[in-house]
Amino acid sequence: MSTSHVPISSPTVPTRRRLLRWRAIGRILEGDKRPIFGAAILAAFVLLAVCAPLLTPYSPSQTSFVPLSAPSARHWLGTTASGQDIMAQFLYGGRVSLGVGFAAGFIATLLAVVLGMFPAYLGGRTDTFMATFTNIMLVIPGLPLLIVITAYVHQTGPLVIALVIGLTGWAWGARILRSQTLTLSQRDFVIAARLAGENRWRILVAEILPNMLSLVVANLVFATIGAILAEASLEFLGLGNPDIVTWGTMLYWADAGEALLNGAWWWIVPPGLAIALVGLSLALINFGIDQLSNPRLRVNPSHRKTRNQKGAKL
């Protein structure tokens, strides 16, 4: 009896919900093209990194070319002081830089969800302790901490860097997700679910979490920007493994190889610009996500008109 009932009613609810969400996304993108633009830039960089072997005949570590030659038809982005092709380094380096950035962003977000939501939902001492701990982690400056940790670890490869950045970068997200969990657990639908006798963890995962998905995604984007910047900073300081080609170690070698003194702008501009553009693309995507979670930020052309009319009337 119930078997005929369930399949009909339960799929319709999520589909409608999902439809509404898609419609909201569509409407935001109609008024604001920035997220699309951001996604396109990001996709381009990912594609360049993935297709590196197809786009360059050289290996990033090959040192057989004329050192410090300016961009030319043979070497689109010139060569380094030790005669490596910068285009090849740029393409292959993107793989590690993006990989580490996204991995660290993911670890940080996962920790933010776990450490932000669970204690808040449990409440009591656990929550007080975790909230204080989060606030402390938030105010201790991140980069100096990363520098000290990597200095002790010695010869840190990309994996260790991703791990260290992820493990230290969760506090901001945890704080936001905590306060959202506290708000949501007072809402009617959560109270109703609790009164209906639903399992506590099911409420947390199935009722609360889906309602802050946009915050989680925003945090992922935000944490990834921070991770890519932090990774590049550490590697620029020579605290990563300088033998692994990434955008950060490219800048380390450019600085160590007196690229500025030799006027080798082609050595410095590409890796830094790539980091900045990836950061920009993620931030542009975040504009869209922000509008999803905070409708007041939506760019709505009609709103401006009414405000001006109001102003004129008064």
Partner: peptide, 26 residues
Amino acid sequence: STMATFTAALPYFWLGLLMLFLFGYL
């Protein structure tokens, strides 16, 4: 706001290197 988004994503040290290159060396 677009420009601010871009400058917020700039690595400090890279911007510093560019400044040093343009206004110092060049």
